[in-house]
Design a protein around this nucleic acid. Structure first.
Lengths: 230, 230
DNA sequence: CTAAAAACAGGACGATCACCCTGTTTTGGA
DNA sequence: TCCAAAACAGGGTGATCGTCCTGTTTTTAG
């Protein structure tokens, strides 16, 4: 592929500067990228070493096995990606629904101008690794759980602040994460981000809640439509 | 794993009975199972040969390459699984919404008593293969498209029959497929099918449409219940 | 300054893996 | 009946992969 990627400029011959953090980070960068693009099993350590400009010895020093490397990618990079792409924007949004909408639209727009769809980092690895290996599975499940919890907590916060009617927080969170994950799966397979917008449109019509809510409201006033049974 | 799987009883030594269809089917069975459980790249042809009781020559005769085998699994088995699990039940249901609900509940119940969650066959392969290889991608995208089309067509049929208000058929189909795919992804990662029920509950609150909506059953007798369109 | 530990280099090794090739047996049509 | 093609058997091969091992260089602690 691209000839020289890194290798540190190191002016002249000889002399080496140890930079364990930097090297570890470079390996993680390349591994994250390669695992997303080709998958875990289809990425060889030789590819990664070449792409990162790292020798076998160095790689083995920081990550004893390929599995350890992937686990680090999941726990450090994938978890961070979900946090930064989903959790923080939703927390910062004026409401859960608005946050979800903003994330969907931001992502869709980014993918459309990117020209290709690589899929959701979490789901990509989850599908390939979660059933075969318990360690991978648990690490990935934790990320899913944190993602859902963040959305559900936001709904609860909205409710305590007066907004958002009887929406079940956990149910809304599960559906949101599922809809996004599935939409990304389709977008990746079709190489078209349009389905993200379709799913968002559908999501926004979920249980518009008995209280406020602009144009698409009205009705929903019957007698006792939903018992507090939950 | 399990010692002897097949190998044809063949009473005594000598004598062979050619059964190209049967052998092809056995290979496909094993490949489908193995690809779902371990993934494409993690399944070696040696594993498949041993599990199916097939020699290298026979395997190579029916499927020249591993990719050809996977393509056959996708086009014949995965497509059939989606047809049988989703498309036919939804078509046969009294309405799109009821069909979707029935499929979700059937699947959730089956997974719960199965004890483990292997994930959606289509999504499993789509995540691992669709971005890296165009041939795989197109084959998988076609299945997704057929799945969505079947649901959308059912909604349209409901509308022409008088039921189902202003629900956008394509939007509803996209959200349904996405929610199911994503829910299965989470269920597989958490090894818990409960999230399927949560997502179904959320899905059923999508755009209940300006017309009817109440206890989920009853009704459906109106004037022209089901046109002979079939 | 010195010694030990950490960081890195680079090659070797055994184990697969997917594919191919050369035979042998079975089958169906002429 | 005969023969060509299909169906199947089974071993071989080159490539590749993940891991490990032996050195060398840099950093750090005392």
């Amino acid at each position: 592929m691209s000839a020289e990627v890194a290798k540190r400029p190191g002016s002249m011959r000889k002399k080496r500067t140890n930079d364990p953090q930097g090297m570890r980070c470079r390996v993680l960068d390349v591994a994250e990228d390669c695992f997303q693009a080709r998958g875990y099993h289809a990425s060889s350590l030789g590819d990664l070493m070449a792409a990162a400009g790292v020798t076998g010895g160095a790689l083995h020093h920081h990550f004893p096995t390929k599995k350890a490397l992937a686990l680090a990618v999941i726990e450090e990079r994938v978890a961070a990606a979900v946090r930064q792409t989903w959790i923080e924007p939703v927390r910062a949004a004026p409401s859960a629904r608005e946050g979800v909408r903003a994330v969907f639209e931001t992502l869709a727009a980014a993918l459309e101008q990117q020209g290709y769809v690589r899929g959701c980092p979490l789901n990509n690895l989850a599908h390939e690794l979660s059933f075969a290996d318990p360690d991978f599975r648990i690490a990935l499940a934790d990320i899913f759980a944190g993602w859902r919890r963040a959305i559900a907590d936001k709904v609860r916060a909205d409710q305590e602040a007066g907004g958002e009617g009887g929406t079940d927080p956990d149910r809304f969170a599960a559906l949101t994460v599922a809809a996004y994950s599935g939409a990304m799966s389709m977008a990746k397979t079709a190489q078209d981000a349009g389905v993200l917008r379709e799913c968002l449109a559908g999501l926004e019509r979920v249980e518009p809640s008995p209280s406020q809510n602009g144009p698409p409201a009205r009705r929903r006033r019957r007698v006792l439509r939903q018992q507090p049974i939950r």
